[in-house]
Structure formats: C-alpha cells, structure tokens
Amino acid sequence: MNSATSPVLPRPRSQSLNDVRDVIPADCYEPSRSRGIVALVQAAVLYLAPLALLAVTDAWWAIPLLWLAAGLGVAGLFVLGHDASHGALFRSRRANRMVAWICMVPSVHVEAAWNLGHNRVHHGYTTRQGFDFVWHPTTPDEYRDMGSRERLRHRLEWSFLGSGAYYLRVVWWEKMWRFAPGGKNRAAIRRDKYVLGAVMVLLLAAAATVGAIQGGWVDAVWLPVKLIVVPFLLFVQIIGWTVYVHHVSPDIRWWPRREWSQFKGQMESTTILTFPRLVNRLWFHNIFVHVPHHVDARIPFHQLPAAAAAISEHYPDTVKVDRFSAGAYTDATRTCKLYDFDAGQWLPYSAATS
C-alpha cells in the first residue's frame, strides 16, 4: 500500500501520565495575565465586601448570610492562591509566590508548608496508601485497634458534617502548622509561619482595638470573632468538603503501594464535577474540574475545561464526569467509612466487627 494513502492510525493509549499530557493542547498551558488579575480583583471584592458589611451591622438575620458570603470569599481567594502556589496563575515565579502568600492569609495557610504537603506529597502520590494524607482511608484492622475516643473522632470526621473537622485537624494543623520538616524546606516553612503568625496577631489586635473603641470589652472580643474567626471556620468546612468530593466516592479507588501508579492516582482516583455555573464563576474557579489539574498542575484555572475536554476525548472510559448532587455526597458519607486496599473497596463500620 502506498504510504501516501495509508490511513493514519491512532496512537495506542497507554497508562502513562506523559501520554495523557501529550493530548492536552499547548495553549492550555498559557496563563493569562488579564484573566488572573480580574479573578483576583473579583475574589478580593467578594471577600472584603461581606467583611465591610459585617463590621457595621448587628442585625441577627444578616450576620449568618454575611458569614457565609465571607467564608466563600476566603475560599475564592484560597483557590486562586492554590493556583499561584502551583505556578499556574502568572508567568512570573515571583508574582505567583507573592499572590499565593497573600491569598492564603485569610485562610491562615502557611504557603511554604502547603507547597510541600499539597503540591509535592498530595499531587505526587495521590490516593497512594501510606503516602497521600488527604482523606486517607482507615482499614478495618486499624479501626479495630483504635480506642473509643479515636473511633468517635473518626465517626465525626467521616460524617456528613465532619469534613471541616477533618481538614482542620489533619491538613491545617498536623500537616501545616504543627509540621516541622528537616532539610532545605525547614527555613522557608519556619519563616512563613512566623510572618503569617505575626500578620494574624496584628489583624486580630486591630479588630479587637476597633471593637473596644466602639463598645468596650465585649465588642473587643466579638469583632475579631465576627470578622476573622467565623469566616475562617466556614472556609474550613467548605474546603474540607471540596477536597472530600474530589477523592472520596464509592467508585473512587485508593491504591496499595504495589499497585499504585501516577496514571491510576491522577486519572482514576480524581473526578470532574459539574457545578452551578454562577457559583463556579464567582468562587470556585473550575477547581471541580479536577482530573486535568491532577494530570498537570501547571494548567491555569481558566484552561481546565479545555484540557478536560481533550483528556476525556482520548480517555472516555477512564475519566469520571458527574453532576454534583447533595444526594451523591450523602451517599458517599454513608458508604465510605473504612477501606479494604487489597479488594479496592469501601466498607461500612460493620466490617470492623465481622
């Protein structure tokens, strides 16, 4: 057969993450300075506007709504800071570093520690047993060995409302603030902790001072709680839930060390969830388009849908695409309690007693 008329055979797909990256169009890696700046301005407004209103109102019906808006505002800034921490928001490494640090202040995240724990460990070993600490499952044997207090904590953290408690303890406290690594990361993490700690003390003190001037010691306590503490705690609940739905579901596998691969972790154990367009546009910046983000974290947030389309076209039987529903989430929190790594199966608590 003449080579000029021979049909072009499709390249065979393999379970190599580099092959997946090859199908992503080159322009999906192009950051946009204007889109990045617009997104940052939008996020800043959506965070600062509720705070300004909280500062001047004590209406009982308005405060919970403004708290929710402020918590979402913290989340919006954090998602963009997360993008910058991956080096994906702007071309400049220095700009990304600065933006990541500033955007993570309201969420009280130590950027250097986040860079190590999230960017390198979670992304490097996604859903690998003993490595990925984000929502790492507990086996029936491990649950049986727990004391009553640990079991109660596990039941809380893996419940419908427990995602914030899990994230606060495991990710925010143990793997970031309490974490003290050796080697070359030690100095950067300690510096960021000291600087961020000082900034938070100053912000709390400023809010307390304004409160004291306005209404005495009661307002000196109330204003920092109203403006800083409660929005932070609501953010923790939001981000804990967000991470949960990315990597925990009855059809999402976690892998024993001997079976895990980059392809399995990034392609088979992450999801793409379609979300209400306005909510995604205002606060979440395509963070639920999670498969391409795990395939290559250098892809900017505004290019994730195009990258997802290209990956899904070439790997239609691998990529999980679902519409988010509260029902699916509650089903997951009922089903996904313990895990059998050998069988690749989520189990109920009753499995620990059988």
Rank of each mutant, 00 (worst) to 15 (best):
Q15E: 15
S16I: 01
V23I: 14
I24N: 00
A26M: 05
P31L: 04
P31H: 06
S32L: 09
A43N: 01
L48Y: 05
V56D: 00
W60L: 12
W61H: 05
A62N: 00
P64C: 04
L65P: 11
L66V: 06
L68S: 13
A69H: 04
V74W: 00
L77D: 00
S92P: 06
A95M: 13
V99C: 06
I102G: 03
I102W: 14
M104K: 01
P106H: 02
V108P: 00
E111K: 13
A113S: 14
H118I: 09
N119Q: 06
N119C: 08
R120E: 14
R120D: 10
H123M: 02
H123N: 07
Q129Y: 01
T138P: 02
R151L: 06
R151S: 04
L152T: 15
H154C: 10
H154N: 12
S159A: 11
W172P: 02
M176V: 12
A180W: 03
I189V: 10
R190T: 02
K193P: 07
L196G: 13
L203I: 14
A208R: 08
V210M: 11
P224Q: 05
F235D: 05
Q237V: 08
V243H: 13
Y244F: 15
Q262E: 10
F263S: 01
Q266W: 00
Q266F: 00
T270V: 07
T271F: 11
I272D: 09
V279C: 07
I287G: 04
V289N: 12
V291Q: 06
H293R: 03
F301D: 07
H302S: 05
Q303D: 09
A306G: 09
E313N: 13
H314C: 09
V321W: 06
F324W: 14
A326W: 15
T330G: 00
T333G: 08
R334W: 11
R334H: 13
C336F: 07
C336H: 05
K337F: 07
L338V: 07
F341G: 08
A343H: 03
S350M: 12
T353R: 12
